[in-house]
Computed example of a mutant assay.
Amino acid sequence: MPAEFPKRQHYIPKMLLGRFCDDEGRLWVGDKLRNKIYAQNPAKALAQTHLYTRHSYDRSPPSAEHEQILGRIENDAAPAIDKVVGCARRGEIPDLSERQRTAVQRFALAMARRTPESQRRVSRPLTDDDFYTIVSSRADQIGYTDLPPKDAFFEDDRWRGFAERIRRNNAALFAAGTDPHMVEEERKFIADTNIRFAVARETDKRFVIGSHGITIFDAAPAGGELAGTVLPIAPDVLIHAVYKPIKPSLLVIRDDPASSDLIDAVNEATTRQSQTIAGNSETLIRSLLP
């Protein structure tokens, strides 16, 4: 494997994590499973080894193609996200070009596909029984006669390793969104949706980012704003995917009880849906964990 191969791969992009650091460049992380809160370098946070690596089945070298696809989506979106954050902080509705809007939409959709937690939400895990049925059916189709019985199949390290590579490759393919069905779903998403924006101004309250990626937000308890899919892109700015004909707009969240409740509700939804949350304040992270 080449030395430059990206082994540690972020399911929450470094480009996004860097925006949630404190003034000293630290990201405050809350891990619900381990019940720990700690400061971490964003380069090391919310990542897994070889999460998007495509593994071969014939002993050829692994490929970083899925990681590279996600990297291009991030790079395309980064300037548009910079523009969104800058405009929102000035109280202006971001005036995105068609290309910039598409880049932000692709980025938001990728955030819904790429995290392990979001993948578990939208798909049923492939059980050993399911997997063996698929493999044996394919073996019958091609006339392969050396497939062992199911119990022996999963007791054999070589076959079990083969099964694990397929599972990991399928998850990485889903994250990258290159399957023809997902390409069509992306086209429809871009055609059918707009992006709204929200900014927290004149208030000290801030958003967190979660390991689920996007936040599915039921806004009813907080006055009906931001219902649907939201994604914090900075501690004080988030994007909100809405279906047309709703047009882009900017929700300014100020220092009043209703606005305070809205930020709290978004953060609580992010925390419920995520095993790990991160933000620019230890106090904020502690307030959200039990």
Rank of each mutant, 00 (worst) to 15 (best):
H181M: 14
T271S: 06
H240V: 13
A43N: 10
L16E: 07
P235I: 05
I142K: 03
K32S: 14
S259A: 14
A3D: 13
R19M: 12
D264Y: 01
S137A: 15
L51G: 07
F174K: 03
F20Y: 01
R165I: 12
R254N: 12
I216R: 01
N194P: 08
R26G: 10
A88V: 11
T49R: 03
A278H: 01
P235A: 01
I263W: 01
S136Y: 07
S63Y: 04
K36V: 15
E225F: 15
A222T: 07
Q141H: 10
Q100N: 05
R206M: 13
K32I: 09
S211A: 14
G210W: 08
L109A: 12
T133K: 04
A198P: 06
D128Y: 04
H66T: 10
P221T: 03
A110G: 15
D128I: 00
K205Q: 14
F162M: 11
H181R: 10
Y11M: 06
D255G: 04
D261F: 04
A77Q: 01
L284D: 08
N267F: 02
A269K: 01
F217G: 06
F20M: 12
R121D: 14
G71S: 11
L70K: 00
I216A: 13
Y11V: 05
P13L: 00
S136V: 08
S63W: 09
L96C: 06
G143E: 03
D218W: 03
D58M: 09
D95L: 09
S60C: 09
D31L: 02
T53L: 06
A269E: 04
F162I: 14
P116A: 08
L251M: 07
P79W: 05
